[in-house]
Simulated assay, not measured.
Amino acid sequence: MQTSPPLPASAASSPDHAPAVVISDLHKRYGSVQALGDPAAGVSLTLRRGELTALLGPNGAGKSTLINLMLGLEAPSQGRVSVLGGDPRDPRTRTRLGAMPQDLSLPAGLSVLELLTLYAALYPRPLAVGAVLELCDLKAQARQRAATLSGGQARRLGFGLSVIGDPELLFLDEPTVAMDVRSRQTFWEGVGEMRRLGKTIVLTTHYLEEAERSADRVVLLSAGRIVADGTPTQIKAGVRGAKVQFVSELELAQVQALPHIEEASIDEHGRATLRTREPEALLAALFACGMQIHELEVSRATLEEAFLNLTAAPASTPAHKELKA
Rank of each mutant, 00 (worst) to 15 (best):
L310W: 03
T273F: 10
E174V: 00
S150L: 13
G60E: 07
A99H: 11
S82T: 15
A75R: 15
A99M: 14
A12Q: 13
A147H: 13
L303M: 06
S14G: 12
T65P: 03
D267H: 12
G42V: 08
T148F: 11
Q245W: 07
P88K: 09
L56N: 01
L252V: 14
R240S: 11
A285K: 08
R300P: 01
Q78D: 15
R94A: 15
L169T: 02
M1E: 10
Q34G: 02
V112Y: 03
S105Q: 14
G62N: 09
S32D: 15
G86Q: 04
A242C: 13
R271E: 12
R182Y: 10
L118S: 09
R94S: 05
L161C: 09
E209R: 01
N68S: 15
L97P: 08
R184K: 08
V218E: 03
P5V: 12
R196A: 11
D229G: 03
Y123I: 01
S299M: 11
L203T: 02
R94H: 09
D25L: 05
L208N: 04
E168Q: 15
H206E: 02
P58N: 03
V255G: 08
L286R: 12
T205D: 00
L55S: 07
D38I: 05
G290Q: 14
A120T: 00
E174S: 00
G57F: 07
Q34Y: 05
S105C: 10
R94K: 13
P279E: 03
H260S: 12
R49G: 11
S4D: 13
G42N: 09
Q78K: 14
L308K: 05
R300C: 06
P91Y: 06
G60D: 09
S150R: 07
P19G: 10
M179P: 01
D137W: 12
N59S: 13
T205V: 03
V239I: 09
L26T: 06
A120W: 01
R156I: 11
K63P: 00
G130Y: 09
R92F: 11
T65N: 09
R196P: 08
S265R: 14
F246R: 10
D90R: 05
L52G: 08
F159Q: 02
A281H: 14
A146P: 08
K321T: 14
T95E: 01
D38R: 15
H17M: 12
S105F: 11
Q292S: 14
G158L: 04
E212K: 01
A61S: 15
P259Y: 13
V112R: 00
L52T: 07
R155K: 12
A306I: 02
P8Q: 13
D166M: 06
G86P: 12
R225T: 07
